[in-house]
Amino acid sequence: MAIIEFDDVHKWFGPLHVLDGIKLTVDEGEVVVIIGPSGSGKSTLIRTVDRLEPIQQGRLTVDGVAVHDPKVDVNALRRRVGMVFQSFNLFPHLTAAENIMLAPTKVKGLSRTDARARADELLTKVGIPEKADQLPARLSGGQQQRVAIARALAMDPKIMLFDEPTSALDAEMIREVLDVMRQLAREGMTMLVVTHEIGFAREASNRVVFMDGGRIIEDTPTAEFFAGAREERARQFLSKVIRH
């Protein structure tokens, strides 16, 4: 069943046509990886799902809600959609556990005790239970990103969006973040992932979407995509990212 549906979505940044007639469907439980050169509109695309970016034309439905309808309760929608950012965006004045507890206590009204128990559980899941009471500045990039994933999961979202989650990380930390994402994928989380990690796409995704110039050039099941992308531009891009 489709949980995210883009129907002829357009967006402009001034004269720049950043999303040009996007048609894309993601089913519940699917993991879809979006790749493409920088400036192709990948990040903008997933940011529209959480309404962090407005769209100017077309229709985007997420979990049965027309996201860009002005009457939509955007806060209610965002509770069901988790987002992980390239730059982690943890709250620096709060500890790891407090970062995770903030939304459950303030938005869902969970008690601090329950929220703390859930935070500890999630920190265990992402492999750093001992960091609960550390401030973000005391954590490595990989640890910060894992806290950010735990923070998004604390709202029990139906969909997780990842916007280049490993692009700001050193090589040895990329792995620990990808491991958490692979585990989530195995558990059946619906995921939309913008990444340059071709290995992750190959192992963990169901489909690969290739974007260029604000358009979806190719949307192919993963195995098929890596056996031989249909589009010349996708093949060229792939040969470049795999080589280095």
Partner: peptide, 23 residues
């Protein structure tokens, strides 16, 4: 305060006012 933190708070479902108050 970096835009990213505000986006992170809003993406968790915190309202404009809650983001001001807690972040």
């Amino acid at each position: 305060i970096e835009r990213g933190q505000i986006e992170a708070a809003r993406s968790l479902g915190l309202s404009f006012i809650q983001t001001l108050r807690y972040v």
